[in-house]
């Protein structure tokens, strides 16, 4: 079963193709890592899938629901608004800078969207948040505000906030860029734990080690195109041979 399917995706900014004919898919329960130098379009790709950017061509299917399709005349057709919102709720995104809500406590960061979007009761939302915080080893910070947290703690709150919405795919944008080496290890453990729970995970990163240690499959992007795709071993072997200029 495919959790995500992308065909011939094109994204232009000022008429320059930031993403050029991207096609790939993600199987359910798989961990896919998208690597590549900065400016290769990998973050833009995440933003397109999460509906933060509109695309200029191609197809995005999430769980066999068509978010956007392009006909033979090149007309880009998005799903109608309700379906778009529904599809949006199936994907979660943990931002590079976490983007927690500074005016809400940790608890409220995790419950607000449950209550206001999913219409769960406060009690139910609180219980879900508490369980997630226990899982993230953060229960002691339940009443803290984001400004009182370290980078690693903020990230775990951001993960809990995304998980509280019960997404089927969880996306991470440069998850280790703000973390020191020890916290990177913690992050890898969290990903492994999520993956054991059958979560489908897509990670955008420029760190090869992360890609090597946790992914089932790796995609290497450069200048808006997919250059290599395969298991971590395959991709890194090819990259070593063909692109020695790329620093590991």
């Amino acid at each position: 079963m495919k959790a995500l399917e992308i065909k011939n995706l094109v994204k232009k900014i000022d008429n320059i193709k930031i993403l050029n004919n991207i096609s790939f898919s993600v199987n359910k329960g798989e961990i896919l890592t998208i690597i590549g130098p900065s400016g290769s379009g990998k973050s833009t790709l995440l933003r397109c899938i999460n509906q933060l950017e509109k695309i200029d061509g191609g197809t995005i299917k999430i769980n066999s629901d068509v978010l956007v399709d392009t006909n033979n005349n090149g007309d880009v057709m998005y799903a109608e608004k309700n379906l778009r919102t529904q599809i949006g709720l199936k994907v979660g995104l943990v931002f590079q800078h976490f983007n927690l809500f500074p005016h809400f406590s940790v608890l409220r960061n995790i419950t607000e969207s449950q209550v206001k979007v999913l219409r769960r009761s406060r009690d139910e939302a609180n219980n879900i948040a508490i369980q997630l915080l226990e899982k993230m080893d953060l229960k002691s910070k339940i009443d803290a505000y984001p400004c009182e947290l370290s980078g690693g703690q903020k990230q775990r709150v951001a993960i809990a906030r995304a998980l509280a919405m019960d997404p089927e795919i969880l996306f991470f944008d440069e998850p280790t860029s703000a973390l020191d080496p020890k916290l990177k290890g913690d992050f890898i453990n969290i990903i492994k734990e999520l993956s054991d729970g059958k979560m489908t995970i897509v990670i955008v990163t420029h760190e090869m080690n992360i890609a090597k240690s946790i992914s089932d499959r790796v995609i290497f992007m450069e200048e808006g195109m997919i250059i290599e795709e395969g298991t971590p071993e395959e991709v890194f072997e090819k990259l070593k041979n063909e692109r020695t200029k790329f620093i590991f």
């Binding site: 999460n50 933060l52 919102t85 994907v91 931002f95 983007n99 999913l118 995304a162 919405m165």
Partner: peptide
Amino acid sequence: PTGQYDAGKVLGF
């Protein structure tokens, strides 16, 4: 920061 709008959108607000 625009990230606040992005976070709102992604969470379905």
